[in-house]
Design a protein around this nucleic acid. Structure first.
Lengths: 239, 239
DNA sequence: TTGATTTCCTGACTATTATCATATAATCCG
DNA sequence: CGGATTATATGATAATAGTCAGGAAATCAA
């Protein structure tokens, strides 16, 4: 796998992914100041944006591609905290919290990602209170999502967690087809295991179970949801 | 159990618990404005401050006592998200996120709790940017803690999770004695199970295991940590 | 293309943990 | 105080999920 980075030119003002991001409503002057000195790079699958425990130097903005954010457990297994894609920011938690990165971020699918120096971002927060507020609001929402996930991890069986996560993935990455939805993100079985919090073998077994029950089908490395209601049934009930 | 509430008078300006809170550095004028129209109530064990899914009307400030914040799972089991005590706020996530409460809060040990109307809190955020920033910083830290917990829930065995949580509880509620630390919060076995994410019976068994190994001892409804290093050993390794 | 590497899959076995049943101890309340 | 309720404890058993081993398929890189 090549690890060469290639720089590209992306202007915030004309950035398509900005439409899906918290930068959506920024004015031109803010955008120009923000983009001052930023760099944009094409990352290949497998490259790491930052490592847990290191100091954040700025904000990563995903233009395209997919990234996993994960923590390393003591036995060397990853726990994926969240997946990020076009329009998402990475690293603001550590920046705002004035802490080191609490997790690592690695590219899952080739990605175009801009890096905005810390000072530009802090300056934006200082001068644009509206943005600061909407960012805080978004962080609070995030916190609620994490609470949800915590409860799921603690209370549901592995089978239910897998079903639940497939539903969530479908909501985020679903591409509608006729009578079915393709989850448009290439995750390895190991990645899925590291989302669900289980062993790779268990994910493989359960997925082929779901496939036998015609809840899902496989399409290359991607999963197609055939029966969302069936998945919800798998996700909701205990035993 | 009595469910009578009794009002009391607590002034923010002279509040002892404020020293441990984010309100620590507020000036008198801010404190006066904040305290305008607030109410202070003595809650008895078992009383609920707010319920998951309802609309937040203000901020709860814990003056004394202990509170559990939890979500209800589909099988009716609680998942305790966090424990709060003197100096902690409750409800700011929902207020700032402009969402309904994502969890419920119930008193574990008799508590004196002030309720600050939403408008006062919002006004404080509007007028005191320094406070807003420190609150945001604290929320970001919280998010990091939740990530940590997620990874723990997903990756550690029940035994390790129990040991880990005992260590965390010791850090937060520990009262130093000679050669041992008392965890000064009265949790039922069921509460502990709902923190760890397991069955009550399992907690009972593991705790008596830890007791047999002289890692802990029981003191009424509280737990005394005899061998913190031993607990860390139990917490860290897989198998 | 081809050999090497990684990912995916399956089976067998084991360990952990949940569940159910029941007993005892502690606490609450009239 | 004493009966009722709740919390804690223990045993037996079953279900779930993890681990280890080995093989097939897919992907990668030369």
């Amino acid at each position: 796998m090549s690890t060469k980075k290639s720089s590209i030119n992306l202007a915030c003002a004309t950035c398509e992914s900005r439409k899906d991001s918290l930068f959506e409503n920024l004015f031109t002057e803010d955008l120009d100041a923000l983009g001052e000195g930023k760099s944009c790079v094409i990352y290949k699958k497998g490259q790491t944006l930052f490592y847990e425990g290191t100091r954040p130097m700025g904000l990563f903005c995903i233009n395209s591609g997919k990234v996993k954010v994960y923590k390393m457990g003591s036995q060397g297994r990853e726990q994926i905290i969240r997946l990020s894609s076009s329009g998402d920011f990475l690293g603001y938690r550590a920046l705002l919290g004035e802490e080191y990165y609490s997790a690592s971020a690695t590219v899952l699918e080739d990605a175009a990602i801009c890096f905005i120096p810390k000072s530009n971002f802090i300056e934006l927060l200082r001068t644009n209170l509206t943005f600061f507020k909407s960012l805080t609001k978004s962080i609070c929402h995030e916190l609620g999502v994490m609470e949800e996930q915590m409860a799921m991890l603690a209370q549901k069986s592995v089978r239910e967690r897998l079903a639940t996560n497939l539903i969530i993935l479908k909501e985020s990455y679903g591409v509608e087809g006729e009578e079915s939805v393709l989850i448009d993100i290439a995750l390895s079985r190991e990645d899925i295991a590291n989302i669900v919090g289980t062993a790779t073998e268990t994910v493989i077994r359960l997925l082929s179970d779901f496939k036998s029950s015609n809840l899902i089908s496989f399409e290359g490395k991607k999963i197609r949801v055939l029966d969302p209601k069936g998945l919800v049934r798998e996700a909701d009930f205990y035993k």
